Simulated assay, not measured.
Amino acid sequence: MTGQGVPATDNSLRSRASIDRDLRQILCDVLGLDTDEVDDFDADTGLFGHLPELDSMAVAGLLTEMEDRLDIVIEDDDVDGEMLETYGGLLAFTEAKVAES
């Protein structure tokens, strides 16, 4: 079960709001960001290269935590600068991965 009460193995039932909420919590937990700061993220909020906490080492931890909590698989080929550039890009990537699983 995920923290939102939806079985992790049935991602087809996950709403965009649920994915958004989980992704924000993962960013807080992995990067040690303040919840209020992350709650203010919009689609254009810069991530990699904009948040000092999100360096190359943190990216690996972030992706691993996303896989674990959202029951998705992220291949090395999936990871590029565009998906980590903004919160909107990361959310869109995550939604697509959840839909695939």
Results as ranks from 00 to 15, higher is better:
Ala8Pro: 00
Ile72Cys: 07
Phe48Gly: 01
Leu90Ala: 09
Glu100Trp: 01
Ile19Trp: 09
Phe48Gln: 08
Gly88Cys: 05
Glu53Cys: 04
Val30Leu: 02
Asp29Met: 01
Glu95Phe: 03
Leu27Thr: 00
Val73Lys: 15
Met1Thr: 14
Ala17Pro: 00
Ala8Leu: 11
Val79Lys: 12
Val38Ser: 03
Leu47Tyr: 08
Cys28His: 01
Asp40Glu: 15
Asp42Leu: 02
Gly49Glu: 01
Leu23Pro: 05
Gly5Ala: 02
Asp36Val: 13
Gly81Asp: 15
Met83Asn: 03
Asp36Gly: 08
Leu33His: 06
Met57Gln: 10
Lys97Pro: 03
Leu63Ala: 11
Gly3Gln: 14
Ser12Gln: 11
Leu33Phe: 02
Leu23Arg: 06
Val79Gly: 13
Asp42Glu: 05
Cys28Ser: 03
Ala60Gly: 13
Ala60Glu: 14
Thr9Ala: 04
Arg14Gln: 10
Phe48His: 11
Asn11Ile: 00
Val30Cys: 05
Glu37Trp: 01
Glu95Trp: 02
Ile26Thr: 03
Phe93Lys: 06
Gly32Ser: 07
Val6Lys: 13
Met57Trp: 06
Glu95Thr: 09
Asp34Phe: 02
Val30Gly: 01
Ala99Glu: 08
Val73Glu: 15
Pro52Gly: 00
Gly81Arg: 13
Asp22Lys: 09
Pro7Met: 10
Asp80Asn: 14
Asp22Thr: 07
Glu95Ala: 02
Gly5Met: 11
Asp78Glu: 14
Asp44Tyr: 06
Val38Phe: 02
Ala60His: 14
Leu84Lys: 07
Asp29Val: 08
Arg69Ile: 07
Val73Phe: 13
Ala17Asn: 09
Ala8Trp: 07
Phe93Val: 01
Glu65Gln: 14
